[in-house]
Design a protein around this nucleic acid. Structure first.
Lengths: 140, 140
DNA sequence: ATATAAATGCAACTATGTTGCACTCATTGT
DNA sequence: ACAATGAGTGCAACATAGTTGCATTTATAT
């Protein structure tokens, strides 16, 4: 079931030139299998028992995956990072949706972002972060 | 210097029907005096020594001020809440700017927010949260 | 002045994330 | 295949933001 995600994960890491370790594969596969952005905690729970992984290693691996553009992480109002696999590289410019009921977070691909924001004079634009809040289908 | 903010703060609290205490006045005055959104820590530092205030009391007072619409709090990617006085009630529908250099956060009033986001079917819109990141005039 | 509920202070706790250092193991070159 | 090497990992300890329970104080109404 998950094996195709494992293979994809391994390919992504190897193709990217990184060292291929069980931890990286397992974590990336878990994120690839997910339709939503999930937390450090949730990733931990989804990892197979055959792959015991230290909290710290998980944090560092996620950091590595982010830095190398294989996943991205999302800010939220509950002070917890959520992570999502980058299916297409450089696809980080999108909005996110967060359900105020169940705290589920998903990516919204269609983002009509205009880069020309009316900033005070002397300010320089870099990027935009946009979260739409509401209720998901289950919580409605 | 700050006395006018103290008076304004006291008026806002009293007019709102809340119990008028030195803590509430001092905290709200500190936020009114500020041109930017500041953290729990920064508020603590700005309070006069004549007003020693417990960390917990500060948290609870901020919570009360938020619930009563006198201030609002802002999510950020550094997992720290920032607070800003509401000059006009109900003025919370605006974007925020965060400087990636000095972490300064300000409110952007002119926000052409459209409420019609293309959400998946069955999802219900509630509100939008938007942060523009870049460099402020000092950090440019 | 007094009663009362709201606000405060203190101690202990939770949760997320970070740092330093020793040890392991994936990769590379022979 | 085998050894050398440095990237990756595990463990312990730490840092920070924020929360909870309960006793004490205080702003307000009577």
């Amino acid at each position: 079931m998950l094996s195709k995600f494992y293979r994809t994960a391994e390919d992504m890491i190897r193709h990217h030139g990184g060292r291929v370790t069980p931890g990286r594969i397992g974590i990336l596969a878990a994120l690839l299998a997910e339709q939503q952005a999930i937390t450090h905690r949730e990733i931990e729970q989804r990892l197979p028992q055959s792959l015991p992984l230290d909290r710290v290693t998980l944090y560092r691996t996620l950091e590595w995956l982010v830095e190398n553009g294989l996943i991205h992480k999302i800010t939220s109002d509950d002070r917890v990072w959520r992570y999502n696999a980058n299916l297409e590289p450089q696809s980080h410019q999108h909005a996110h949706f967060k359900c105020t009921g169940c705290a589920q977070v998903i990516c919204l691909d269609s983002l009509p972002i205009e880069q020309n924001w009316p900033l005070p004079s002397g300010y320089r634009f870099q990027e935009i972060e946009l979260t739409v809040k509401g209720l998901c289908a289950n919580c409605c």
